[in-house]
Nucleic acid binder design. Structure first.
Lengths: 161, 161
DNA sequence: CATCTGACTTGCTCGTTGCAAGCCAGCTAC
DNA sequence: GTAGCTGGCTTGCAACGAGCAAGTCAGATG
């Protein structure tokens, strides 16, 4: 028997978080969702993930409340998009910590990817206030900036609600 | 062919970090290493992980520079222990972000697990200075505190120098 | 010598991933 | 009409990886 162990009921909050976020692809799906991706086909194309795996990952993320599935109009027909919930957007500190660690301790030609407060233009950590200018940090005033990013800067997606 | 994709050479630092830290068990191994576990047998017993998986995970963590394998004397014979390196101890913000998210967005009877600055006794985020008292944060003055923890408080392991 | 312990390694089985193909609804082209 | 396209899945297959059990090996201990 090789059933994958679940840490969903662990006492340790790190283990419970790892139960969802620690699965392969999940962190990258969340990264792209945070960067604004909402549609199945876009996740598939951007990540190169297999369809069936994407289906199960998205379902688990919806089940755990990180994403929500909403209908939208495409042309004249109804489709569905996956939007970040509050819980999903709250994973930003996890992504930020991973990015910081990855930049510091893994090798790459690329420069850092930073989180910037677009109102003051300076880098900051996620939190209540901007590390640089001290003003309250609104989610809508945050963007990822990196030389390797296509447009140079990517605004963060807002949670639904 | 179903060989697991590697993100070790990705441009995105989040993907490179996820390549190591996103594997099953790895985050929990790192959590326990941060809490002071150093020996194979102890990791095995505490986590309930299969031997062969633990072997490969520890080897990858050593290979990626998060842990280092050091000889030590046990009775009169030489054994090996796995100690955190600087890179390994720098993963603390990742664990902290996961723990915070896990406490906020997964259900459990247990209370929060916080990172405390033992000099002032207050909770803080990892960083250069204590969020509560403002003094510089030394690794040796940090501990995890949670009602579910055996001793109530666990000091963080220091990296080898 | 036999036994014990820690740290692995090997073998087996089954779940999961990757890949390819198929399906289905609704729109567009002819 | 019907043929095709597109997005979002589902299904089938082969290979990898996790869980489990058992075996190995070195050095201490009885």
């Amino acid at each position: 028997m090789s059933r994958r162990i679940t840490w969903a009921d662990a006492v340790c909050p790190i283990a419970r978080a790892a139960d969802v976020l620690g699965e392969p692809w999940t962190l990258l799906i969340l990264r792209n969702a945070t960067a604004g991706t909402t549609r199945f086909e876009d996740f598939r194309a951007q990540l190169g993930i297999a369809d069936n795996v994407l289906t199960t990952r998205l379902a688990k993320l919806v089940d755990r409340g990180l994403l929500t599935k909403l209908p939208y109009r495409d042309g004249g027909r109804t489709r569905h998009e996956y939007r970040l919930t509050q819980a999903g957007s709250d994973a930003l500190p996890v992504l930020h910590a991973l990015g910081t660690w990855g930049h510091a301790h893994t090798s790459s030609e690329a420069g850092p990817t930073t989180l910037v407060h677009t109102r003051c233009g300076q880098a900051t950590r996620p939190g209540a206030k901007c590390d640089a200018c001290g003003k309250p940090l609104a989610r809508t005033d945050l963007a990822w900036r990196g030389s390797w990013l296509d447009e140079g800067e990517i605004p963060l997606a807002d949670p639904v609600g």
